[in-house]
Write a protein that binds this DNA or RNA. Structure first.
Length: 805
RNA sequence: GCCCGGGUGGCGGAAUUGGUAGACGCAAGGGACUUAAAAUCCCUCGAGAGCAAUCUCGUGCCGGUUCGACUCCGGCCCUGGGCACCA
């Protein structure tokens, strides 16, 4: 051990030892005490960013602390290597996506190794590897056979200049990012997975996810959005046409003053054939994207169809409009307009001067409309005076009994569109005959690989333009055929990667059943931005795998830690803002332990983290002090006798505290604070020479063990110096016995809830005795002098509150 | 707009089940060491009043519940994430 802390040397030594001792294959043969730690694998964008460092440091703390507790921990790492940035780089720098991706991976792998994370590198995977994506093609064909996959027309962002489909992020203010052309909506046939068949399964199983944050579970529940409502039939005046509107608020039925239908509704397109005005309206808004967000925010617009229908109860005539804010992928694409009780309908009615009838009364509604709250019905004939919930039920029954409508259950969740018109993705393994018939690629021809020789210039879809790849002869019929040129959504790859990690080199199957016992993943760690889509798709995929008998359980991730983002100057780090931090710079300057320490100390894991250059310096200083003190204790501290055991009590308290923080609370910042506190006390005891050499060593060793999961390199070096200890993955420290009996505790004394005094008492005293001591306390006496005690509240070992007059 | 988080000193944060607000750290100020600087070490550090003991106020804003509220309830403001083709 050198006198001075040299992170570069310390880290190199430790990493060499860990590298040599890795034996993943042997580990995976045993499932006793198995613990599968998974951090969300990165997209290989080129450089690790601080968010990755945070994610992977948390994963490593969980991994190392569990190894120390004797668990058999598997922690893999790989690459989510298909995706848009590779194509963008190809267009910009004329480099092949594969080449670009591979060199990024090579660089980022080194970066990860430099942080000292204990990965099972033998099991590394890359999703762009045909050995990986072969199995998702194989699985897709299973689903196709089962009828869980279908094709339908669906809208995309179409850049009319580049003749290409754009991702949402490539559309800026409605214009294409490269061409600047006004982006249009275009309907093309695309593949879908029937996730809606599993809506109830996905919803109900959320209750099994005890180890997930409530917020994430709630977000998923709301996303699935199961709701009971009523499909109401409105009969048209002029013909026998029926408009079925879905509503979750039958209680507002008497407030309906118009009917609004979506521009994509069949009736709308029929009318547009005859009416120029309607045609223009539809053409205009068909070019614009309509999401829930735009539906809420868009300037409401509409066109009157000239038609009316009858209110199903009052028989009043109601105008039918085509409106730009009606979603056609939720409900029926027809909405009953209730301006008084829906903000969007309100805006619409105001603009077109439609009638507004208030039918719900509550405290809030006295003078402000629209009012979405429940309340008591008014202006609703025989339903007047009923509360919303009862009215909903009665009105629903009325409709069912009179065949005017039907109670239905709807979901917000939509089927998962998995087609992407991109080159850098996994080819969808089907082909088409000239008549359009779909054929699955025979299993023995899998994987369908990507052609290497392609032209990527931002125009069109390269696969569509590569006829050597696209045009084939049908292996079954010998007829001319063309391959599917769409590739999978990259969420497809990340929905099952945690299986493949266990058996990455298997050429015969997706995943061998002997690894089943390693599932589900015990601890999953990743960014909160994935709370819905990725996690929902992975849960869905797991159920599909279960139904195929590939896995045995219902849910893939037992416990989930959703980490917050890393901010600089209050904003998300991004290249455009120029506020990025390169982890390499920090590691070069201070070492990996410092960045690990800082990133865990600066904020609790699930919260956003504000980056600070000066605070990182503080972490470095602490490690230097820790090194210096350890050196002193190991080399030149020689005090034979222990003078008091306060510091030993602190030793024990710190072990308790850090154990709870690491294993139960996942509160790494407070665990570090506790160790720092202990360090300060120990430092003082050593200065005062009140602790013996033997106990000082014991304290240093415990501290190195407590910090081992967080700053493993320096702790490895210090434990090596103490010699008696196992330096690599040591055991979790134990308390010193017999030092903390008969402790004193501080009890605070409050008068009317205000802190007035503090008393020290033995922790095993009874309530009466403690109250007696408190009443004798000088300060308390002063406050109680002229008062009478109305009530005494005692919280054991914490406080006494005298309520006085 | 909707769904889910967050708001506490100059800054990052702590307070685990409603019970001492500000642990731990950063920055700042003062001091020691040094020819000097760096490094290191020591002291002070929410606001106001007071010579002091000490007192009053204080956890985004307004109100409520409670002996007691950063914590629970109602309303509002600001801010981060998600809204289905970024991953």
């Amino acid at each position: 051990m050198n006198k001075d802390y040299n992170p570069r040397e310390v880290e190199k030594n430790a990493q060499e030892v860990w590298d040599e001792n890795s034996c993943t294959r042997e580990k995976l043969t045993r499932s006793k005490d198995k613990y599968y730690v998974l951090s969300m694998f990165p997209y290989p964008s080129g450089k690790l960013h601080i968010g990755h460092v945070r994610n992977y440091t948390i994963g490593d703390v969980i991994t190392r602390s569990n190894i120390m507790k004797g668990r058999n921990v598997f922690q893999p790492m790989g690459w989510d290597s298909f995706g848009l940035p590779a194509e963008n780089a190809a267009i910009k720098n004329n480099v092949h996506p594969e080449e670009w991706t591979k060199s990024n991976i090579a660089h980022m792998r080194i970066q990860l190794k430099n942080i000292g994370i204990l990965y099972d590198w033998d099991n590394e995977i890359s999703t762009a590897d045909p050995g990986y994506f072969k199995w998702e093609q194989w699985f897709f064909l299973k689903l196709l056979k089962k009828g869980l996959v279908y094709r339908k027309l669906s809208e995309v962002n179409w850049d009319p200049v580049d003749k290409t489909v754009l991702a949402n992020e490539q559309v800026i203010d409605g214009k294409g990012w490269r061409s600047g052309a006004l982006v249009e909506r275009k309907k093309i046939p695309q593949w879908f997975l029937k996730i809606t068949d599993f809506a109830d399964d996905l919803l109900n199983d959320i209750d099994k996810l005890d180890g997930w944050p409530e917020s994430v579970k709630l977000m998923q529940k709301n996303w699935i959005g199961k709701s009971k409502g009523l499909n109401i039939n409105f009969v048209s005046e002029s013909s026998s046409e029926i408009f079925t509107a879905f509503t979750t608020r039958p209680d507002t039925l008497f407030g309906v003053t118009y009917l609004a239908i979506s521009i994509n509704h069949d009736i709308a397109s029929n009318l547009s054939k005859k009416d120029e005005k309607i045609k223009n309206f539809i053409t205009k808004y068909q070019k614009q994207k309509l999401s829930e967000e735009t539906s809420a925010k868009v300037e409401k617009d509409g066109v009157f169809t000239g038609k009316y229908c009858f209110h199903p109860i009052t028989q009043k005539k109601i105008p039918i409009w085509i409106a730009n804010y009606i979603l056609d992928n939720y409900g029926t694409g027809v909405v009953m307009g209730v301006p008084a009780h829906d903000p969007r309908d309100y805006d619409f009615a105001k603009k077109f001067d439609l009638e507004i009838i208030k039918v719900i009364d509550n405290e809030k509604s006295t003078n402000s409309l629209p009012n979405v709250e429940k309340g008591t019905l008014v202006n609703s004939s025989e339903f007047n005076g009923l509360k919303s919930d009862i009215a909903k039920e009665k009105i629903t029954n009325y409709f069912q009994d009179n065949n005017l409508g039907e109670e239905v259950v709807t979901y917000r969740l939509r089927d998962w569109g998995i087609s992407r018109q991109r080159y850098w993705g996994c080819p969808i393994p089907v082909y088409y005959h000239e008549d359009g018939t779909v054929y699955p690629v025979p299993e023995e021809d899998l994987p369908v690989k990507l052609p290497k020789d392609i032209k990527l210039d931002g125009e069109g879809n390269p696969l569509d333009r590569t006829s050597e790849w696209k045009d084939i002869t049908c292996p079954v019929t010998g007829k001319k055929a063309t391959r599917e040129t769409d590739t999978f959504d990259t969420f497809f790859e990340s929905s099952w990667y945690f299986l493949r990690f266990l058996d990455p080199h298997n050429e015969k199957e997706m995943f061998n059943k002997k690894f089943k016992s390693w599932l589900p993943v015990d601890q999953y760690i990743g960014g909160i931005e994935h709370a819905i889509l990725h996690l929902l798709y992975a849960r869905f995929f797991y159920k599909l795998l279960r139904d195929e008998g590939i896995v045995d359980n219902d849910e893939p991730f037992i416990s989930l830690l959703s980490q917050g983002m890393v901010l600089k100057d209050g904003a998300k780090m991004s290249k455009s803002k120029g506020n990025t931090i390169d982890p390499d710079d920090i590691i070069n300057k201070y070492g990996a332990d410092t960045i690990r320490l800082f990133i865990l100390f600066a904020a609790p894991p699930e919260q956003n983290l504000e980056w600070s250059d000066s605070a990182i310096e503080g972490g470095y200083k602490f490690l230097k002090r820790f090194w210096k003190l350890s050196y002193l204790v190991c080399n030149s501290y020689d005090v034979p006798k222990n003078k008091n055991n306060k510091i030993l009590i602190k030793h024990n308290e710190t072990i308790d505290k850090v154990s709870t923080d690491l294993f139960k609370r996942k509160s790494y910042n407070t665990a570090i604070a506790a160790v720092m506190e202990f360090f300060n006390s120990l430092s003082k005891s050593i200065d005062e020479e009140s602790i013996s050499n033997e106990y000082a060593k014991r304290c240093i060793s415990s501290m190195a063990k407590l910090l081992y999961p967080i700053t493993p390199h320096i702790c490895f070096a210090i434990l090596s110096e103490i010699k008696a200890e196992k330096a690599s993955n040591p055991e979790w420290p134990e308390k010193i016995e017999g030092v903390d009996v008969g402790q004193e505790v501080q009890v605070i004394v409050q008068i009317n809830g205000k802190l007035r005094s503090k008393i020290n008492v033995k922790s095993d005293l009874k309530e009466e005795e403690i109250v007696k001591i408190a009443l004798e306390d000088q300060k308390t006496k002063e406050y109680l002098a002229k008062a009478s005690i109305l009530k005494t509240i005692y919280i054991p070992n914490k406080l006494i509150n005298f309520v006085i007059k």
